[in-house]
Amino acid sequence: MFEHEDDVIERVIQELRQPVGVDPALDARVMAAIAASSPSQRGVWPWLAAAAAVLVAVGVWQPWSRGSRAEASDTFQFVLVAPQASSVSLVGDFNDWDPARAPMRVAQGVWATAIRLTPGRYRYAFLVNGAEWRADPGAPSARDDEFGTPSSVVTVGGKGS
């Protein structure tokens, strides 16, 4: 009649447990096939991978950006009293000296803005009405004004401060 279910399972298990017969020459044939393949085909991928890794590293590193995104940062408030001004921008080492990137807001003649800074020493100045450079009266002055206009300095301490 019919074979018992447990017997079938046991027979299948026994079959699966039998060692697989492999041609002893298989390894030799595989290695021979690899050796016969074109060296340029085998060699190009590691090189391409290395080049891609370098480019990705540069992209992540972004050598033109200042500081590390993982670094701790503090928010600093910058203030200038200039009731007669029609515009004031905060420009410095922290925003590539680009007046368009840090326009300040005014309330009753007091111009202010707050920005986050990572540890470092930054030179900066206020650009009033797009033409007049002013140092921050509430901050240390930068002594080496090689470009003939006043600048100030803000320092952000590092870890362990």
Partner: peptide, 8 residues
């Protein structure tokens, strides 16, 4: 960049 922004 400071120099060029300050028109040096």
């Amino acid at each position: 960049l400071e120099g060029t922004t300050k028109a040096a």
